[in-house]
């Protein structure tokens, strides 16, 4: 799907193999669109990922993306609009998870496991049975940055702006709810409303970015920028802007690299993020050892990975 560089390098007749034309992919509109949407999706996932990581919601994110896959497959077969089909399906799954988990005997994580895998299996079955619709189903599964519709960029940008506005306006309440829900509740914060808001932002984020990144990789893009920025700062406020910046970088750089690597863009984006995480992890470890080796025993290890 992604054109390779080798052809263009030979056509130019340049003997030097290092003379790769770095601006080459920009001639193509689909690449420019892909770069924009990958960058935006990375920033959005980075922002929402802060809450996903700190509230231990990554399994919910994982589950939601799988549930949405079922909805997307159904929408494709019924020739419905993707956002309507997948959105409604995701909402119904969320409500069902809540209902099953309230029974107490079954934990929320197990409820997510049952409902979202059922949804995912239904998607796979539909994909196998109805070949014609399978191309767009395939895009949801693995992500297809280069096949974005113009409406996709608007959707990601819209959810991104909305999420950023909500996070700015409700900053302290969201921080209080995330850090210490019980004390927040007795201090007058409407904790259930804050939690519902975060759930809504997470669902909307997955809905608009899943076709770009793919069901199988979306939870990684939600987690990687957040955990990498967590390694680099001890402040919630700084993490909240660092994580979207890193997410945008992973998206943009990964997209660009995928052109030359001739590998699906979702995979390269995640590998970029993983590389950054490893660099941060190792360098923070080195710094911490240096500090522990010093005599500053009062400031113990600021970071733990456990």
């Amino acid at each position: 799907m992604v054109p390779t560089t080798s052809a263009s390098a030979l056509v130019a007749g340049v003997p030097d193999v290092l003379a790769v034309d770095l601006s080459e992919p920009f001639q193509y509109e689909f690449f420019r669109n892909g770069l924009v949407i990958a960058t935006l999706a990375g920033a959005l996932c980075g922002l929402i990922g802060v809450f996903v990581v700190l509230r231990n919601m990554s399994y919910i994110g994982h589950g939601l993306s799988h549930a949405i896959f079922g909805g997307a497959a159904l929408a494709a077969v019924l020739e419905l609009n993707y956002f309507i089909g997948a959105g409604l399906w995701g909402l119904a799954s969320g409500l069902m998870i809540g209902r099953v988990a309230r029974r107490r005997i079954i934990g929320a994580d197990a409820a997510i496991g049952v409902i979202t895998t059922a949804s995912f299996a239904m998607g796979l079955a539909l994909q196998a049975r109805y070949g014609q619709a399978s191309r767009s189903i395939d895009a949801v599964l693995f992500g297809n940055v280069l096949g974005v519709f113009p409406g996709d960029i608007a959707a990601v940008a819209g959810v991104g702006i909305f999420s950023a506005a909500v996070v700015v306006l409700l900053y302290r309440k969201l921080l209080f709810t995330t850090f210490d829900p019980e004390v927040a509740a007795v201090s007058g914060v409407r904790v259930p409303a804050m939690e519902a808001t975060l759930m809504f932002l997470l669902s909307a984020t997955i809905l608009v970015t899943v076709r770009v990144i793919g069901v199988l990789l979306i939870s990684a893009l939600l987690v990687l920028p957040a955990v990498t920025s967590r390694l680099l700062t001890n402040s919630f406020g700084r993490m909240l802007w660092l994580s979207p910046v890193l997410g945008a970088l992973f998206g943009g750089v990964g997209m660009y690299a995928s052109w030359y690597a001739d590998v699906p863009s979702g995979a390269v984006i995640i590998l970029c993020g993983t590389a950054a995480f490893i660099v941060a992890y190792v360098s923070v470890g080195v710094r911490r050892r240096a500090r522990v080796a010093g005599l500053d025993h009062h400031s113990g290890p600021a970071l733990t990975t456990g």
């Binding site: 700190l54 921080l175 850090f179 967590r230 700062t233 001890n234 402040s235 919630f236 406020g237 456990g306």
Partner: peptide, 9 residues
């Protein structure tokens, strides 16, 4: 382990 400074708390 939550990333908050004293002033943020």
């Amino acid at each position: 382990n939550f990333p908050v400074t004293v002033r943020e708390v």
